[in-house]
Every structure is written in C-alpha cells, then in structure tokens.
Nucleic acid binder design. Structure first.
Lengths: 110, 110
DNA sequence: CGCATACATTCGCATGTACGAATATGTACG
DNA sequence: CGTACATATTCGTACATGCGAATGTATGCG
C-alpha cells in the first residue's frame, strides 16, 4: 500500500474527510463528545451554538462517519464514531504543540 | 492532556491545518513528494497542474508546515516536512478503505 | 546590464460554505 | 387529532477558496 498512486476519486474522498474536520465548530463538537454521547440540545447548550447550527454540523460529521447517532424517543444521541477520530485530532494537536514550543524557544532565545 | 478543553484559538489552528489537507490538488502534491523532494516544475509536470497553481498550493502546505522548502540556485525543492504528514493521510485512507470494503460486503450480501 | 528560466503573486470570477432566521419533520402524549 | 418538544432542512446573504491569465520577483549567465 505504501507507494501506490491513489485514484483521483479516492483522493477526493480523503479531501472531503479532512474538510469535515476543517471547521472550528465541528472540532468543538467532537471535543464535547469525548466524555460520552450527547443530544443536539446538550451540545448546543455546551457550545453556545444555535440548535440549527449544531444539527447541520452534526450532519456533516455523520455523513463523514466521524460520529454515530441513535434515536431515543424524542432525542437523538450523537457519539464519536470510534477512537481513531480523536487520534486524528491529537496527531495534529501534537504537531501544533511542538511547533508552538519551538516558537517559544526561539523567542526566549533572543 | 486527555480531557482538557482546548481554547478557541488552538481549535482554529487545528481546523486550519485540516483545511490545508482538505484539497484534492494538495493531497496529490503530498503524494508525489513521498518518493523524495521535487521542484515546482517537476510537480507541475507530474500532476498536470499549471505552475502558478502548484506554487499556490505549495505555499499553503508550507504555511501549515506540511512541507519544507530549500532554494537551490534557480530551483526550489519541496519535500514532506516529516513522516507524520503521511501518517495523517494514511489514517484517513485506512478508515476509508475499511468503510468501502464494508459497503462492498453489504452490496454482495443482498 | 540584458536576457532566460524558475518560481511567486495579483486580479477577476465562479463556486463553495457558514450562519441566522424561519420553517418543516418527527415523536410522544393526552 | 392537537399540542409540545427535539431535531432537521430551507432560504438568503456574507464571506472564503480555487482557478486561469497576466504580471511580478529572484537567480544565473554571458
């Protein structure tokens, strides 16, 4: 798998998946879901976002299989699809943190 | 680090990093760089993209520290910043592949 | 300097995306 | 059925993004 060239279609799918993660609001929602499943209104309350807005962003995350949902009567519970979702974010976070500490070193150095 | 809430600023940085990866053309460039450093024209030739376009996309990747660059006389060589860049893509690819094979199973099942 | 080559940037336009507000759907319950 | 509540969708608008074409900048060479 290492050195095969990916088809344009697969490439577009990958891009789309990253695009789903490229929004502050959606990352915030994923973050809130780390502690367990929540309903749309719960998420709206915790993130101070409008309900419609939360619902839309969740739809994007769901379409990209980053979250799962389950209807429970009048409520819909959303949860992280799996652990790898957070791994993705943490990989990026880790990079950012080491970059930031690099910057701090440089600034302190002068 | 596990359960701390990230600041809106850091969240935006993460989003921006994902956004840099959310474009077919840029993923294609990263893919071409797997085999080693290349110049802008090399990349343009291999991807059949316009030179200006390649240069722009490389600027985005560079700003997000996904590639490094080095001037060599008249040329500029671009290279992957590190191995983790590909890890990110492969994580997403792996997810996609298992999802696709799931779909194939379902289709075969009926 | 003048020219050629490689790379970067700007401009205009078409397309995509996020958001608030309003509205629709869906579910439970009397 | 009618009402209440949770969630989803639509619409209009403001703003971001990608691209081709043209132009600007940088480096090397005679």
């Amino acid at each position: 798998m290492a050195n095969k060239r990916m088809s344009p279609e697969l490439l577009e799918l990958v891009a789309e998946r990253f695009r789903a993660l490229s929004d502050r609001a959606r990352l915030r929602l994923l973050q809130e879901l780390r502690s367990g499943p929540l309903t749309v209104n719960d998420l709206a309350a915790r993130t101070e976002m409008a309900q419609a807005n939360v619902s839309r962003h969740l739809a994007v995350l769901f379409a990209n299989k980053l979250v799962v949902r389950e209807r429970d009567g009048i409520y819909v519970h959303y949860a992280l699809a799996d652990r790898d979702v957070l791994k993705l974010c943490e990989l990026v976070c880790g990079r950012l943190e080491s970059e930031l500490s690099e910057q701090r070193k440089v600034i302190a150095g002068r």
